[in-house]
């Protein structure tokens, strides 16, 4: 019953880290989802600008992802420190 042991053995910090990583993922998901949605709308409205919109979408998504990764990194630090 290894899995149960693993689940029970985790400490409070680990719980916090897990929840934190999840929250970071939610935030990034919402942010990038909104970017993707708006980009899709913009492309539908102006198909001729699809290339520029895609490049901007990727850049913005990467910036948001960076923030989310900071969150995940902090969670890793909680775990290992």
């Amino acid at each position: 019953m290894n899995i149960l042991n693993i689940l029970l053995a985790v400490s409070g910090a680990a719980w916090g880290a897990g929840v934190g990583a999840g929250l970071a993922a939610i935030g990034a998901g919402i942010g990038i989802g909104r970017i993707g949605g708006s980009a899709a709308e913009s492309v539908a409205r102006q198909p001729e600008a699809a290339g520029i919109i895609r490049a901007n979408m990727i850049i913005t998504a990467a910036l948001i992802e960076g923030v989310a990764l900071f969150g995940v990194l902090t969670c890793i630090l909680i775990l290992v420190l």
């Binding site: 990467a62 910036l63 992802e65 960076g66 990764l69 900071f70 990194l73």
Partner: peptide
């Protein structure tokens, strides 16, 4: 951010 993004 560049560093962390690629790494992560």
């Amino acid at each position: 951010a560049l560093m962390v993004r690629l790494f992560a």
